[in-house]
C-alpha cells in the first residue's frame, strides 16, 4: 500500500496515446503530476486533448506507452474492470453539464458512485446522512434528497454533481469545465463551495477550463499545451 501522503494523486510519465483509426489523433504527455491535496487548473481550448487526457486519468482508455498512476496505482497494469473499479473508488467526476440521471432522485444520483465502490461506501459511512450534510453544505434547499434530479436548475444540478463527486471523499476530483454553464456570479459561488468541501475532505482537484480568470483560486495553473503535444499522424 503506497503512502497516501507521499504518492501524488496523479502522475503521468512518458505517456503516448493514439486513438484507433487510420487518421489517428495522438497525444503525447512526457510528464504531469498532481500532488495530494493540490488544486490544479488546466487551461486549454477544446480540441487540445483535454478529453483524451481526462479519459486516460480516469482509466477509460489506456496509454499505448508510458505509465498513468492514480493514487499510486498503475492503470496500465489493471484490466478494464479493475480500472472501472479504481475510478469509482478514487475519482469524483464532474461534467460541464447534464451530470445527472434526470429520472433518479437527488439522493440516488449522489450515491451512484458508491454502488460501484465498496470501499468508498465504507468511507462514506451513513450514506443518507452524508447526502443530507453535503446538500446542506452546498446550499441546496432542505429536503431535496427525494426529488427527481431533473427538476432542478442548471446551477443546482452542478452542485448536486459536486455532492456526488465528493461523497465518500475520493482522493481526486476531476472536473471538466464545471462552471461553463453558469453565469459569472454563480461561478464564484460554485467554486467557493467546491473549495470549502475540498478543504474538508482533503481531496486533490484537477479542473479543466478555458477561463484563465479562475487561476487565482488554484494552487497551480498549467497550460495544457505545455504538458501535452497532440498530433494527427497517420499510424
Amino acid at each position: 500500500m503506497p503512502d497516501r501522503d507521499q504518492t501524488p494523486a496523479v502522475r503521468l510519465t512518458d505517456v503516448l496515446f493514439r486513438w484507433p483509426g487510420p487518421a489517428g489523433f495522438t497525444l503525447d504527455c512526457p510528464a504531469f503530476e498532481v500532488a495530494r491535496g493540490e488544486r490544479v487548473l488546466l487551461l486549454g481550448e477544446s480540441g487540445s486533448g483535454k478529453s483524451t487526457l481526462l479519459s486516460l486519468i480516469c482509466g477509460i482508455i489506456v496509454a499505448d506507452r508510458g505509465r498513468v498512476l492514480v493514487g499510486g496505482e498503475d492503470l496500465g497494469k489493471r484490466g478494464a474492470a479493475a480500472r472501472d473499479r479504481l475510478r469509482a473508488e478514487q475519482i469524483g467526476v464532474i461534467f460541464q453539464q447534464f451530470n445527472l440521471l434526470p429520472y433518479a432522485s437527488v439522493a440516488d444520483n449522489i450515491c451512484l458512485p458508491l454502488r460501484f465502490a465498496p470501499e468508498r461506501r465504507k468511507r462514506a459511512g451513513d450514506a443518507g446522512a452524508q447526502v443530507t450534510a453535503l446538500c446542506a453544505a452546498l446550499g441546496l434547499p432542505p429536503g431535496v434528497e427525494t426529488a427527481p434530479a431533473g427538476r432542478f436548475s442548471v446551477g443546482q444540478q452542478q452542485r448536486i454533481a459536486v455532492a456526488r463527486a465528493l461523497i465518500g471523499s475520493p482522493p481526486l476530483i476531476v472536473a471538466d469545465e464545471p462552471t461553463s454553464s453558469l453565469d459569472a456570479a454563480a461561478q464564484d459561488g460554485f467554486l467557493t463551495l467546491l473549495f470549502d468541501q475540498l478543504r474538508a475532505t482533503g481531496s486533490s482537484l484537477l479542473m479543466v477550463s478555458h477561463d484563465a480568470r479562475l487561476a487565482a483560486q488554484f494552487d497551480r495553473t498549467v497550460q495544457l499545451a505545455d504538458i501535452v503535444t497532440t498530433g494527427r499522424t497517420a499510424a
Partner: peptide, 16 residues
C-alpha cells in the same frame, strides 16, 4: 448515450 456516459464516469463497467 449521455446517460450511459454518466454511468461509466461513476465507475460502471460496460457490462453493467
Amino acid at each position: 448515450r449521455r446517460e450511459m456516459a454518466i454511468w461509466r464516469a461513476m465507475g460502471a463497467s460496460p457490462s453493467v
